[in-house]
Computed example of a mutant assay.
Amino acid sequence: MSSFAPLIFSGVQPTGNLTLGNYLGAIKKFVALQETHDCIYCVVDLHALTINPSPKELVNGTRSIAAAFLAAGIDPVKHIVFNQSRVHQHAELAWVFNCVARMGWLNRMTQFKEKAGKDRENASVGLFAYPALMAADILVYRATHVPVGDDQKQHLELTRDVAQKFNYDYSDHIGELGLGVPMEIGEETVNGYFPMTEPVIEGPATRIMSLRDGTKKMSKSDPSELSRINLTDTADDIAKKIRKAKTDPEPLPGDSGGFEGRPEAENLVNIYAALSETTKEEVLREFGGKQFSVFKPALADLAVEKLSPIADEMRRLLDDKGHIDSVLANGAERASVLAEKTMTDVKKILGLSW
């Protein structure tokens, strides 16, 4: 890995309103990572086609994600912010990876099983092949690290499988062209072109749960608005949703061991810890033994303090669509240069050009 220049890549799909879970589990980390890494952040609009959004929904959703990136503090000048469909090399490399990935790998993907449900024969090929495009999103920039939530780890593992198989299958030609670096696969050393991308999973709240059911992930597609806090919610909305969040009659425990069988209580403490950039244990030192009638108002005040400036800036940016579009266009131009370098090499490696 040391032979590949460190580079962060991640993408967010433009479907539905971004939630507190998206912010704490992903975007907040994106902002922190740009202080130490070169970063590429993408609105993955091609992925959104798997759920067949209306054209208007897709345009609005793409601008909304871009506005959230900028409002949260991502710098589109020092780093790259763009939408996926503007860089055709993503789709081009995805076809190559469709020919590298194995059916068995894709069949094991739990997200496909969940989204396709029992009617798998009616699911689109795009939904099935989604992980190959995700691998292309990452590897077209030869990204070394991807910030992911627990539910995305399997997709990153498939990305690593694709990279490893490509490197192994074409090792000799990669070496002849002088395009690779020595990499160990099992007991063999091969010439690797693609890095074995590593996940970045950290912080006290990598997985934020529903405010109505602490066993389910907070989702922008949940039919209940009370299950989530949207990034564009007003201060009153945020306070109301936290006030109505499901809890239990017991006071908060004195330590983390007291959360057994209390997923909603643990979720609210996790949210407080993530927003205040502290630990669950430190939150419990302050609030352990206190009732939710004390803790919920404190959490609401903290959430409003942290999220209201982002919501205000998002609304301001969405009123200036020309600015958002120019950021995406500029980012795509810069991303295309990097992606084309990779595709030029890949075509040589495959024998598609010479």
Rank of each mutant, 00 (worst) to 15 (best):
G175K: 13
V162S: 01
Q154S: 12
L139W: 07
D172E: 15
L139A: 01
R142D: 05
G126L: 09
D169A: 15
S171L: 10
A129Q: 06
S124H: 14
G175P: 09
R160C: 09
Q164A: 15
P131L: 10
L139M: 09
K153D: 10
P131A: 12
V140E: 00
V140W: 04
M134D: 05
D161K: 05
D169C: 12
A136S: 15
A143Q: 06
D150K: 14
T144V: 05
Y168E: 15
N167S: 09
V125K: 07
Q152K: 05
R142H: 07
A129D: 06
K153G: 08
L177G: 11
D150T: 13
G175E: 14
V162G: 02
Y168N: 13
V125Y: 14
G126T: 12
M134I: 09
V148L: 10
E157N: 08
V140A: 03
L177C: 11
K165W: 06
N167W: 06
I138Q: 00
A136G: 06
Q154W: 00
Y141P: 04
Y170M: 12
T144N: 02
V162I: 15
L133A: 05
Y130K: 04
Q152W: 04
P131W: 06
I174K: 00
Y130F: 09
G149K: 10
I174N: 00
D161L: 01
Q164P: 03
T144L: 02
R160P: 08
F128C: 07
H145T: 10
A163K: 11
Y170N: 11
V148A: 02
T144C: 03
A135W: 03
T144A: 06
Q164T: 15
H145S: 11
Y141A: 03
A143W: 01
A143N: 05
A123E: 11
N167E: 08
F166E: 04
V146H: 00
G126H: 11
I138T: 12
T159S: 09
Q164D: 14
I138C: 11
V148T: 05
V140Y: 03
A135I: 02
M134L: 13
K153H: 07
D150H: 08
D169V: 14
V148W: 00
D151T: 03
Q164F: 07
Y170A: 08
Y168M: 14
L139K: 08
A136Y: 03
T144P: 00
P131Y: 13
A163Q: 09
V146N: 01
A136Q: 02
L177F: 05
A143I: 05
G175H: 07
L158C: 08
A132L: 06
H145R: 13
R160Y: 14
V148H: 01
H173T: 14
R160Q: 14
G149P: 02
L158R: 02
D137C: 09
P131M: 13
Y170V: 07
V146Y: 00
V162T: 06
Q154R: 10
I174E: 02
L156W: 04
V125M: 15
A136P: 03
D151E: 15
D172F: 09
G126A: 13
H173M: 11
D150P: 06
V146K: 00
N167Q: 10
D161N: 14
A123D: 13
N167R: 07
Q152I: 00
L177E: 10
D161I: 03
